[in-house]
Design a protein around this nucleic acid. Structure first.
Lengths: 167, 167
DNA sequence: TATTGTTATACTCTATAACTATA
DNA sequence: TATAGTTATAGAGTATAACAATA
């Protein structure tokens, strides 16, 4: 039946999602000293989208603003960004890459693309494009519903133990 | 030129990889109490591949054995797996799911597939299959070369500051 | 001497809650 | 009263190094 096949697809996708952390860790290992992955994300997003406020950055990072605040403080301490006052709202701060930040961004791009070129050198252009497109779509599917938290499925109709976790 | 286009593909893929943490965090939020994502990975891999030794599990998890040891201890304390002596090597231990572990595995599968069904319900079967296939291939590309650590690209030929990180 | 696995320590990322300053 | 951002605290994941037991 089609439903059964679809759930097996989800199972398999779930396994790939679980194992995908290894890829991100590997990418993290090539980062420059002092620049952890959180810092790299801040610099990369500012380079991609331009100056923005904390709240906007938190949204793009898809993490709580408290986390964003810590990452931004770390990056600002190292001189890669500056925090300008927002003339429209004195509670807010505008984040902007410094010249040193742009240099770091170029270095990050160089290292990342080099590693990906090493690992994906034998991929067809179509496959790279497809993977990027499908990952973006999956992420968008999770972003969209971030307001409403994920719901659990209804409990099993069977009369078996339903919550093995809370033993 | 083609090389330039390829590097732009890598840039875009890199951004998607960076933003992908949000998907994994969302999947982590639906886990049962006491079962963190590390525990879920252990149970899932044992269910998928059957009984195995610590070293094999560490390889499948793609993390250091010390990390594996901690996750396994957590899972064993909750009765989801047992650690049997290995008759072939007394240093080693064979990991096996308990009946409670199988119940937990079923519950994990139920919750994960439900969430994916909610988020990917409008995807074509081809797209789901493609994404799974390409993620597996990308991960394999990183797994294969895990023995040799990722190498950094050669320094820029230009006479600019090459290491903005070590300011 | 080499390998399997455990433990101690330290670092990063994340979320929740309490707090300050401003709207 | 509500919002933008910060800080304190706690929990989870990971790696390195030192260690025990066995091969």
């Amino acid at each position: 039946m089609a439903v059964q096949a679809r759930y097996e697809q989800y199972e398999e996708l779930s396994r790939q999602l679980g194992a995908f952390g290894a890829v991100k860790r590997e990418l993290g290992r090539i980062l420059p000293s002092e620049c952890a992955s959180g810092s790299a994300a801040v610099v990369t997003l500012l380079g991609r989208h331009g100056d923005m406020r904390m709240s906007k950055l938190a949204e793009l990072l898809a993490v709580d603003m408290s986390v964003t605040s810590r990452h931004v403080a770390h990056v600002a301490e190292r001189g890669w960004i500056e925090r300008l006052p927002d003339p429209a709202d004195r509670r807010s701060r505008i984040l902007r890459l410094t010249p040193e930040g742009h240099l770091l961004l170029a270095e990050l791009s160089r290292r990342t693309t080099h590693l990906l070129a090493e690992r994906l050198g034998d991929w067809s252009e179509e496959d790279v494009t497809q993977l990027t497109r499908l990952m973006a779509r999956l992420r968008a599917g999770f972003d969209d519903c971030r307001a409403l938290p994920p719901r659990l499925p209804p409990p099993e109709p069977q009369t078996t133990t339903r919550t093995p976790a809370t033993t």
